[in-house]
Amino acid sequence: MGLVMLALLLWALGWAANAALANGPARGTAAARLAVPLIFGATLLGMWELVVRGLEVPLVILPAPSVIAETFAARTGTLWEDFVQTFLKGALSGYAIGCVAAFAVAIVADRFDFLRRGLLPVGNFMAALPIVGTAPILVMWFGFDWESKAAVVVVMVFFPMLVNTVAGLADTGAMQRDLMRTYGASYLQTLVKLRLPAAMPFVFNGLKISTTLALIGAIVAEFFGSPIRGVGFRISTSVGQLALDMVWAEIAVAALAGTLFYGAIAAIEKRVTFWHPSHRS
């Protein structure tokens, strides 16, 4: 019981520290902006550890963070193998294929207005559907290995990417297009010099949404059958063995991969769309 009281004390301390930082003299600084969420996260982790130890929660319900960290450190080899299988082979290749294909289709659809008017409502509709349900079909077609996972990812990222790119290509003003016409620019020149750069904020929005979708697709597709490695495979089998520390370690891998992937795309976006108002301030 003492540890639980300690957890409550830790919570009070963490909250007091954050309140002092957030309302104190350092409220606007970048350091405070970074410190407050970190303190909050650390407080939650500390409470998790103390409550699990204090109430002696069994491992099969909730392992303590320290146990998860131990498992993570002890089984980095397995985790790396799963990461390569699910992220590098399945998610990343599918992401690349899906985004490039959607981009190409969007450019064609933008060239022919009839196609754009037909594809956009269909694409919007498809983007809201539970496409991850195609996983069992694609696993049946492409086999158990990473090719089927890449196929699921392709289908999942295609429509959000298509809709965003088409919307972006339509985002130039009449004045800007008229200016290009007075320069005597051809369709291709207008596309490359005006409309593609103007579409980049939308394209990157699609790319960022797709990072999460790619990981979800690759992981869920592994629930329908996979070789004996992969994040989704390890999660479902470890859950079956009640090895929850391993499950949490895999979740940590997936979370890290997702955040870094998103961060990488956001960093590229910052360099490409430096002119956009949201990045200028």
Partner: peptide, 15 residues
């Protein structure tokens, strides 16, 4: 939002 939280689903069910 950047994390594939659906990975937690099997664990929630079993726990």
């Amino acid at each position: 939002q950047t994390v594939p939280i659906i990975a937690i689903a099997p664990m929630i069910i079993v726990v």
